[in-house]
Design a protein around this nucleic acid. Structure first.
Lengths: 340, 340
DNA sequence: GTGAAAGCGCTAACAT
DNA sequence: ATGTTAGCGCTTTCAC
């Protein structure tokens, strides 16, 4: 079965290629009848344009790409449909591209920019380190979304929450509920992203309340297991419980980690929240269906995605160049914390 | 900041474009020195080839695409890295493309075939209805993976499990444990995919054991909520509990649904498995960290992905045309079932 | 070992 | 309203 090109269709219909092109792309100045004839041939022979040729030819497009690092992050899942809807509202077509842990997101971004003649790009997740340097060669409007950078360290458009502040918030909440011995599961030892920021918030909260920092209650995720996984939360919590160090509350750096922690705690015969209170971070769907439901910090994923599109659009339209939006996240008070 | 093309680099280096092309693509017949010179310019000016042009020009590639319907299905998550590794082993480069619920997967497949000059394509998930008709215009080797088709109804390469048989297996297990009043959460009313197949297995198991089918114990997922979501499992289980119909065991059509069901059951004051036994289907990671851990049917995701690649490779190499592999899934006996 | 040139399939002037 | 044609940026003969 052979593949038809625009030339074939033109020949079949006895018209020029440009007429076929116009008919396909709904160009106004085409006779209704010829148009119908062309479209019928298109259907009949299952002609599908070659996007490589289209992209190559067009000097510009309305494509916007969303580049995701850590596609399986459940927190991102609430954002995908929002990106899609919002970009469509602004008449952009969009491409979602996942970048693997091993891949160079900047390289991929560059390839995409050329290949699809992107108008703009949104980076979702990832992107630690010197952001400005990394983005140096991205010569189209771009917005960072949900990346672990601090305001100051970055000279690009940005949508995020203040991980330090929010983590401080939830730990303060625990303290208000009477907890003093608060354990924390933070990122792997080498982590410099959200794990580190959330740990910083934890430390600040303790400090403000005159509670002494106890290294024994800080536990890093296991390097040999995917970080922020259920299993990691389970394994390290189990280790913590076995260590014998006492604590009345546990702050997990993510809801998924908290889920693993639940299992470890319950398995050890302890109850949540009667014996140990637990809080998470992210506010993913799962938190509400855990039993007891998980008290956590809920990031406003939908609003963040929407704002990222808005900033990108502004930048594309030239209305502004660099602007940052830091959202405040809400404490979602569920059942996993006991007032002692 | 301007974008460099191969011509620019050629000019800068004082060579022809073909030399640049050869240098970039590691063509053997290039003088080491010129090659070095070219690559340095490439680095210096951040030249990145335009993939559209590359794809357009090349008459064939080693690209294989994996087209996923329902990317967020957690069961698929264990498969992605396997596809990647296995395809790489066979020297294929691979593209993962998600197709939205609203999108026409066949259209996208066709576009991809032309755009990337695909050698083969794997369809992961989706694909209900008349598969043969849908695939009629896919003129490259293709393999269906984890789709809800029955062996007979499809004349294409296929990797799957037998949903009916496996569901029968888990229900039989419940019956062996002494359960007679077994409720089931199945797909939405209009579902003709896995929900329907798994329901059929349930019916068969009951039938074989002379247990009367009780319509009151079958509950469809709610149309107004994403199917197979936690929430759907929660909502319908709650409804079932409130209906007052008695049952000692609950079979949820997926692990995620079972997770929602857990919450509904526990919230109602009942215990798992003492009061109600629960089983799921899929065998995703989560099942092992639920409390109690969920007894379920574990689909061999990794092996299925591997086999899909093998079949595709065979087909590409012309060793075979159509072959089907039906894997058997294992009953994962965890803690959520009580012997009564 | 290297360059010139043809052409992949399409769109968009520019003609007519 | 429609056809002709020049490239988009690259790879790949084919000469040298």
């Amino acid at each position: 079965m052979s593949r038809y090109t625009i030339k074939d269709i033109a020949k079949i219909c006895g018209v020029g290629t440009s007429t076929v092109s116009r008919a396909i792309n709904n160009d106004p100045g085409v006779n209704e009848k010829t148009k119908e004839r062309v479209l019928e041939a298109v259907r009949k022979y299952h002609y599908i344009p070659n996007n490589s040729a289209v992209n190559l030819k067009k000097s510009e497009s309305n494509n916007v790409a969303v580049l995701v690092k850590g596609r399986n992050n459940p927190f991102f899942q609430s954002m995908y449909s929002v990106f899609e809807t919002e970009l469509q509202k602004h008449e952009y077509t969009f491409t979602m591209r996942e970048v693997g842990a091993y891949e160079d997101e900047m390289r991929i971004a560059q390839e995409l920019i050329r290949e699809k003649r992107l108008k703009g790009i949104i980076f979702l997740g990832g992107m630690v380190g010197d952001v400005d340097e990394k983005l140096e060669h991205i010569d189209i409007p771009s917005v960072l979304c949900t990346v672990a950078v601090t305001m100051e360290s970055c000279n690009h458009s940005l949508v995020a929450i203040d991980d330090v502040k929010e983590s401080e918030k939830v730990v303060n909440y625990l303290i208000r509920q009477g907890h003093k011995k608060i354990a924390m599961i933070t990122g792997v030892r080498s982590d410099s992203g959200i794990g580190a920021l959330r740990l910083k918030g934890y430390e600040k909260a303790l400090d403000e309340n005159g509670i002494e920092f106890d290294e024994n209650l800080i536990i890093n995720m296991d390097d040999d297991i995917p970080d922020y996984s259920y299993e990691n939360g389970y394994v390290v919590t189990k280790k913590l419980l076995e260590s014998g160090h006492k604590f009345s509350a546990l702050f997990a750096a993510s809801d998924t980690t908290a889920f693993g922690a639940y299992r470890a705690i319950l398995e050890s015969g302890k109850r949540i929240p009667e014996d140990i209170s637990v809080v998470g971070f992210d506010g993913i769907d799962m938190a509400n269906f855990m039993y007891p439901s998980l008290t956590t910090i809920k990031q406003p994923g939908e609003r963040m995605a929407k704002e990222a599109v808005r900033l990108l659009h502004d930048e594309i339209e030239g209305n502004s160049v660099v602007s940052k939006t830091i959202f405040s996240a809400d404490l979602l008070e569920n059942e996993s914390v006991k007032n002692i």
